[in-house]
Amino acid sequence: MNYRHAFHAGNFADCMKHALLVSLLGHFLRKPSPFMVLDTHAGLGRYDLTCEEAEKTQEWKDGIGLLNEEGPDSPLAPWLELVKKAGGPRYYPGSPLLTSLMLRPQDELICCEKHPDDKRKLYGQFTRTPNVFVHERDGYEALRALLPPKTAKRGLVLIDPPFEEPGEFSRLLEAVHTIRARFPTGMIAIWYPIKHRTPVRAFHMALQDAAIPDVLVAELLIRKPVDPDRLNGAGLVVIKPPYGFAEQASAQLNRLKTLLHAEEATVTQITAE
């Protein structure tokens, strides 16, 4: 499978992931000290929802296409304002562009994208942004090369793999161990798809068995996860979440559940054994 996110940009899973990402980054802005974000699977950065790929699946219509009328008091408002700033509703911003719009001069974003064509397009978006760096390299390999950050003691590692090859959850667990060894003060956010419960449950149990402390799990299910051939939901594991994030995430997911006609929205804690 040759994965390209243009087919899925702006779908319910993107909405869930990016709303929570903006909330996580907002906590860094509460202090003046610099922070670093490492985005291991960056993609294009911005997606034209009128392109051939997006028009073919039209997944965005059941995602960002349902969220244009939210008011300023909505828990989704900070993220939706950034979507608009990035060119929405026609253009949908991925995590690199959303993050870049929240950076201050002292902060830094490092993007990894191993597909040469996607990397070139991503690089072209940030040629005039001095604190955004784009690497053509495997995101997992980059963890050892780029951590710990040289310019900040605070930071977030965002891992958002395409799940196009078997064994992705095992690679994610190994990545967690690498990050915690090289950047113990860093926050980690890991996105994953939910098709059926078995592999997700095994991943959560592996985190628990590894005694990873302070793990929060946020999930949004569009439908019951009984068909392994469909994307039925999405989750975000956050390791070392900031104070107050659980309440923010719950409010955002419940709002998305209502607007996207979802089946279930949950925020839970994984307790280390």
Rank of each mutant, 00 (worst) to 15 (best):
H5L: 03
A6R: 05
D14N: 01
C15M: 15
K17H: 06
L20W: 10
L29K: 03
R30S: 13
L38E: 09
D39P: 01
T40F: 07
G43R: 01
L49N: 08
L49T: 12
E52M: 01
T57G: 02
T57M: 08
Q58I: 01
L66A: 13
L66G: 07
E70P: 01
G71E: 14
P72V: 12
L82T: 06
K85I: 05
P89N: 14
R90K: 15
L97W: 00
P105D: 12
D107T: 04
H115S: 04
D117Q: 11
D118K: 06
K121N: 15
K121A: 15
G124V: 11
F126L: 05
P130Q: 07
P130D: 10
V132E: 03
E136I: 07
A145P: 05
L146F: 03
K150W: 02
K153R: 15
K153E: 15
R154E: 14
I159L: 13
D160F: 05
D160K: 06
P161A: 11
E164F: 06
P166L: 06
E168C: 14
E168Y: 09
R171M: 11
E174S: 15
A175D: 04
V176F: 04
V176R: 03
R180Q: 14
A181C: 08
A181M: 03
R182A: 00
T185R: 13
I188H: 07
I190V: 11
Y192L: 12
R197A: 15
F203E: 00
H204I: 04
H204G: 05
Q208C: 12
I212P: 02
P213M: 05
V215R: 08
V217F: 00
L221N: 10
L221M: 13
R223Y: 05
V226M: 04
V226R: 11
D229C: 00
D229M: 11
D229Y: 09
L231Y: 04
V238R: 01
E247R: 15
L253A: 10
N254W: 01
R255G: 00
L259Y: 06
L259P: 09
L260I: 03
A262R: 08
E263Y: 13
E263D: 14
E264I: 08
A265Y: 10
T266L: 02
T271M: 01
E273V: 13
